[in-house]
Amino acid sequence: MKLEFILNDKAVSLEVDPMKRLLDILREDFGLTGTKESCGEGECGACTVLLDGKPVTSCLVNAVHAENKQVVTSEGIAQKPLGKLLIACFDETNAVQCGFCFPGFLVSSYYYLKNDGEPNLEKIKTALSGNICRCTGYQKIFDSVMMACHRKQEQEK
């Protein structure tokens, strides 16, 4: 099929098998290797991207699902003001250990910060519950997102 979609705010198109996973399209056809594959079954969240603004595991999304949709990857988020804010907070808190899960955490955290942003630990935990960090550095990840929520609130004052 001819697949047309918006990738990180740019219109793109390619000829592709309709069942090809969005994860593979991003990595192989567009070189966006920030999106990682770990479990490949939707359990770990390492391949999280935004599809029409909502977080999904791109290993379970097929080309046909992305047709005429907006896709934003961790690379795209890193260019956005709230993405930069999150990255600064992850950096200051030393939240990143091996880093493999982090693009996924960035996407889920960004979705929470943008659409809710309340500095509420329970809500943050729920928002990140689809992402797994096998270095188990959850506390610092939650601290970073909490910090980003506070900073966003200050900026909006």
């Binding site: 889920s108 928002a127 992402n131």
Partner: peptide, 9 residues
């Protein structure tokens, strides 16, 4: 159910 990531799809 599942996770927020799967609930979307």
């Amino acid at each position: 159910f599942a996770s927020p990531l799967l609930q979307t799809m």
